[in-house]
Write a protein that binds this DNA or RNA. Structure first.
Lengths: 209, 209, 209, 209
DNA sequence: AATGAATGAGCCTTCATTCAT
DNA sequence: GATGAATGAAGGCTCATTCAT
C-alpha cells in the first residue's frame, strides 16, 4: 500500500472517528485536535475534507442517523394497530439500546443535542426522522378511532416517544429505576413488552372519558 | 437602602446568575465571563468567593436543588393512590414547565449533567433526590397491588418519569408533537391531565396480564 | 514600580507599537504576535484592550491621524487665496514628509490603505479628513472665480492633492525623479514652492479656455 | 478544437489569472488557492509550472509589463512638445483607467509593490520602465526651454506623474473629488484634458519666476 | 472586601507546499 | 504531464485563572 491512500480511506476514517468523539462528548466539548489524533490524520484534514468543525459534525450526524435507520423495517400495514405499535416500539427501543447493529452513537448524539442544541442538525432531522413520527401517529389514530381529537393523538405520541427516549439517557441515569446498570437482551425485551402494554392501555384509557 | 455592599450581596448575585447560566448552557458551555457580566460583578469574584469554576458550579447546583425541594409538598398519605399520583405528576410537570415558583433550573441542570456528566454533584444527588423516587414508587405500588413485581413497579416508574421528563426540552423539541410551540397554562393542564390518565390506565394495563 | 501597572501604561504601549508595526507592514502583513512581542505584552492583551485585531488597527489609525492633524493650523481667512493655497500645500507636504513632529506613520498607513484598502478606517477618514478637503476646494474656488464649474474645481483639487500625495510613496519610489533619496528640509521647501507655483498657474490655466 | 491539453494552455491560464489576482490584492494577500480556483487548475500546478508563489509572482509581473509596453506608442518627435505631452498624458490615463486594451494590471501591481515591496521585481523595473521616464522628462524640457534647471524639470515630472497616478485607485478613492464613482469615457476625456491644460500652464508657470 | 490588569494554554482555521501516482 | 491527497507551521482568538492593589 502506498503512503498516500486513495483519499476515501482517510476521509472515512476521519468521519468514523468524528462520530465516535462527538457521541462521547458532544459538539462543543469534542476537540478537532482529539478527533484527528485518534483518527491518525493531520488536523488540517478536517478543513480539507469537510471545511470546518461544524460541517464535520453535520456529516457525522447524518452518517450516524443513516446507519441507524438503515435497518428499520416498517410494520406491515395489514396487521392490527396494536401489533404495529408493538413492532414500532420494539424497533425504537432496540435501536436506542443498541441491541442490533450500531454502536449507540445515535442515542448519544441525540442526547447531546437535546442537552446542548447546536441547531446544526435540524434540517437533517426533519428530513430523516420526521416521516417516522407521522407513521407512529397514524398507528395511534388507528387505535383511538375516528372520534379522537388530533390533540389527544399527539399527546399519546409524546407519551410513547418520551417513554422510549428516556432510555437514551439510561446508562448514565442516576434515577436508576432499573436495578442493574447492565443491559441484557432479556431486560430489553422486558422494557419493550412493558412500554407496549403500558401505552396501549394508556391510549385506550384516555379515549374513555 | 444604603448602597454599601456587604459582600453577601455580591456573592448571592453571582450565585443566582450562575444557576441561570449553568442551567441554560451546562458546565462547559457556560463561561465565567458571561456569568460575571450578567451578574454585574468582576471576573475575579468567582475566584474570590468560590475558588474556581467547578466550585461555583457545585454551589449553584446545591442552591438549585434546595430551592427545588423547598417548594415540594408531598401529597397527603390518606388520599387514594390515583389522586396522589395525579398530584405528584402535576407537581413534576408544573416544575418542569416552570408554572409555579422555580425557574426550571433543576431540570435543566439535571439534563445537562446527564448529557455531560461532570461528576461534581453525584453525592448531593443521591442524598437529596433518591427519597423522592421512593415515594413515587410507593404510589405506583399502591395502585398495582401487592401482587406486582418490583421490576414491574420500576418500569412503570420509568414510564411516568420519562413522560414528564420529555417536556423538559419541549421548547427546543424537534419532535413537535404538540401543535404550538407556545405553552399556555391551559396546555399545561392538558398535559398533566393526559399523563395522569394515560399512566393510571397504563399501570392497570400492565397488571392484568 | 509594581509589576502590574496602572493599565493605561500597557494599553498605550500596545497602541503605540501597533501604529509602528501597522505603518511598516499594513493591516494584513502585520501580525499581532509581533506587535505584542515588540510591545512586551501578552498576545491576549489585544483581546483584552481592543477586542480584536481590526479594532486595534482602527484605534491605531485614529491615534495616528489625530497626532498628524493636531498641529494643523488653518490659514487666516483674510489672506489672498493664492497665499492660503501656499500655506495649505506647505502644511500638507510638511506633514507628509514628516518635517515636523510625527514619525511618518500617517504617510505609511495611508499608503498601505491605498494599496490594500481594508475599509476599516473609512468612517474615521470622512470624519477627520473630509472637512480639510472642503477648505481646500473653497480656496480653489476663490482663485478660479464664480464662473468656474464645480467639476473644474474638483479636478483642480485632485491635481493638487495628487501632486502632494505622490510624495507619500516617494521613499520607496523607483520613479526617482528626485536625484537623491535623501530628503532635506531644503528639498522639502523646493517641493512646496514648486507645487504651489505649478498649481496656481495650473488653476489659472484651466480657467482661460 | 481538440480537447487535448498541451500543457501550455494550463500554464498560460494560470499565469493570466495570477496577473489578475496579484493586481487585485498584492503579493501577500493573493492566495494561490484562489488563483488556482479562478484559473480552474489544481493547486499543485503552481509548484509544477513555476516552482513557488514567488516565481509565479515574478512571472506575472514580467508578463504584465510586457503587455503594458507592447501597446505603448510614443508620440511623433516632430510634434510641438505641448501636443506630445497631451498624447503622453492621454496614454497614461487611458492605461490607468483601462480605457484601451490592458486591464490596468501594471499600475495596480506597481502600487502594490510600492506599498509592500517584495523586492522581487526591481531589476526588471529599472531595465524596462526607466527609459519611458526619460522621454517624459525630455518633453518637459522642450516646453521649459534650455534655461530650466534639471531639478525644475524633475519636479514638473513628478507633478504630472503624480496627478495621473492619483487616479489609479480612484474607484476606492476616499478623496472623492469627483462627484460620481462611475467612470465614463467622457469623464476620462475630461480628466485627460484637465491634466494636460493644468500641467502645461503649471510648467510655464514655474518657468517665469 | 473586592477588583482591574494581565496571562498561558489551547482551539479552530488558513495556507503554501510536498508527495505519490 | 498533471493532479488529488495530505501536511506543518503559523495566525487570531477565547477563556479560566492569577496577581497586585
Amino acid at each position: 500500500m502506498a503512503k498516500r491512500k486513495d483519499g476515501k480511506e482517510t476521509r472515512r476514517k476521519l468521519l468514523d472517528t468524528a462520530c465516535e468523539v462527538f457521541a462521547e462528548k458532544g459538539f462543543q466539548a469534542a476537540k478537532v485536535t482529539e478527533i484527528c489524533r485518534r483518527a491518525g490524520v493531520n488536523v488540517a484534514a478536517v478543513s480539507y475534507y469537510f471545511g470546518d468543525k461544524e460541517s464535520l459534525y453535520t456529516s457525522a450526524w447524518r452518517q450516524t442517523v443513516e446507519d441507524f435507520l438503515s435497518s428499520d423495517i416498517p410494520p406491515p400495514e395489514d396487521l392490527p394497530p396494536e401489533e404495529r405499535l408493538f413492532i414500532t416500539i420494539r424497533s425504537i427501543i432496540r435501536k436506542i439500546l443498541s441491541i442490533d447493529t450500531d454502536k449507540g452513537y445515535f442515542r448519544r448524539l441525540e442526547m447531546m443535542e437535546m442537552a446542548n442544541p447546536t441547531g446544526l442538525v435540524d434540517n437533517a432531522w426533519k428530513e430523516l426522522i420526521g416521516p417516522r413520527q407521522q407513521k407512529l401517529l397514524k398507528i395511534i389514530r388507528d387505535i383511538m378511532g375516528p372520534a379522537a381529537s388530533e390533540n389527544a393523538v399527539r399527546l399519546c405520541g409524546m407519551s410513547i416517544i418520551n417513554q422510549c427516549r428516556g432510555y437514551i439517557l439510561m446508562q448514565k441515569n442516576r434515577l436508576a429505576f432499573l436495578e442493574s446498570e447492565e443491559l441484557t437482551p432479556e431486560k430489553a425485551d422486558q422494557i419493550i413488552e412493558h412500554i407496549s402494554r403500558f401505552s396501549i392501555a394508556g391510549i385506550k384509557g384516555v379515549c374513555n372519558s
